[in-house]
């Protein structure tokens, strides 16, 4: 038993992203069996579309978590709500205004990221509390700004968010491409290497001449911009911005990072696992719906699976201790 567990862990450590994909496939197979083999195409298509949103916020959150223990961005849901509302109101349903609206929303996200890092760095507030308090303020702004806002997204943006080419959601193609770029950034760029170095040992990174503050600053801004982009696309996807559309993405953003095999202690991450975990999470809900599992039981199972994944994966002992 122990040796099997050890073997499992060694596979996990060499290819941490594999289990998210294997899990997603197993769940997909069970769903298909329960469905007597019908509807496979639709399920995949829906999983790609919904998974895109999980992946977007997950990638941003992953960069933050990579930067070391204690780093996390809890302002994602509030950010999604505010950025979505800002984008929809500036675009005003007109295609011509899409670039300006997008720019405003991303700028809004970047501003939230700057505030987050200012709280962390200048006021020396722990990231979890800093992003939590800033999210309270952003939430209020979103409520006041978005009150009674019923503006439908511009047709072109709605087409990108909901359209399909040969059954494959356009959005998912874009987000997969973006994930590819971010994988390059993480593993090949100087910024990515600095980030991982900081996550593994901040003091050593600092002594090696890495400008730790600057890299961490960029990371919080990056995460906030990804959340803002998710807000814009989510608003376009659901036919307009709503205040609570970001709610589920706090837990989801952290869950996909963990299930995707990124070390919560920082320093070790992978982007592909995020997509595996995003598909896994969506397919899990689909499977339980297909099997006729009620809301309560579905939540219990989701929670137990997250706990089971982290228990089996274990933590990387010896890296920081």
């Amino acid at each position: 038993m122990t040796s099997r567990l050890a073997k499992f862990q060694s596979i996990w450590q060499s290819a941490p992203y594999a289990f998210a994909f294997i899990g997603a496939m197993v769940i997909f197979a069970i769903t298909l069996i329960a469905n007597q083999g019908s509807g496979a195409g639709q399920i995949v298509s829906a999983a790609l579309a919904f998974g895109s949103f999980y992946a977007l916020v997950g990638i941003g959150q992953m960069f933050v978590i990579t930067s070391g223990p204690g780093n996390i961005d809890l302002s994602v849901p509030a950010n999604i709500a505010l950025s979505g509302a800002v984008a929809m109101s500036i675009m005003g349903g007109s295609d011509a205004m899409i670039p300006l609206g997008l720019l405003a929303a991303l700028g809004c996200g970047a501003a939230i990221g700057c505030v987050n890092y200012a709280l962390i760095s200048v006021l020396r507030i722990p990231p979890i509390i800093a992003t939590l308090s800033s999210s309270f303020v952003v939430q209020s702004l979103a409520i006041v700004y978005g009150r009674g806002l019923r503006i439908t997204p511009p047709p072109f943006l709605a087409e990108i968010a909901t359209g399909r080419v040969a059954g494959i959601p356009i959005l998912s193609v874009l987000v997969i491409a973006l994930a590819g770029v971010m994988a390059l950034v993480l593993h090949r760029s100087i910024y990515g290497r600095f980030l991982k170095a900081i996550g593994q040992n901040m003091n050593a990174a600092s002594l090696a001449g890495i400008r730790v503050g600057l890299v961490r600053f960029g990371t919080y801004v990056l995460c906030a911009i990804f959340a803002a982009l998710c807000g814009v696309l989510l608003a376009a996807f659901s036919g307009g911005a709503s205040l609570n559309m970001g709610e589920e993405y706090l837990l989801a953003s952290i869950a996909v990072v963990v299930i995707g095999g990124t070390s919560v202690a920082g320093g070790f991450s992978n982007v592909s696992g995020i997509w595996g975990a995003a598909l896994f999470l969506y397919l899990l809900v689909t499977m339980m719906n297909t099997l006729g599992v009620g809301t309560g039981l579905r939540q219990i199972l989701t929670g137990l699976i997250i706990v089971a994944v982290i228990t089996l994966a274990g933590s990387r002992r010896g890296v920081r201790e």
Binding site: L251, A255, R298, Q299, I300, L301, G303, I305, I310
Partner: peptide, 8 residues
């Protein structure tokens, strides 16, 4: 994860 379980 447990927050889901309790809520469920």
């Amino acid at each position: 994860g447990m927050s889901f379980v309790w809520l469920g």
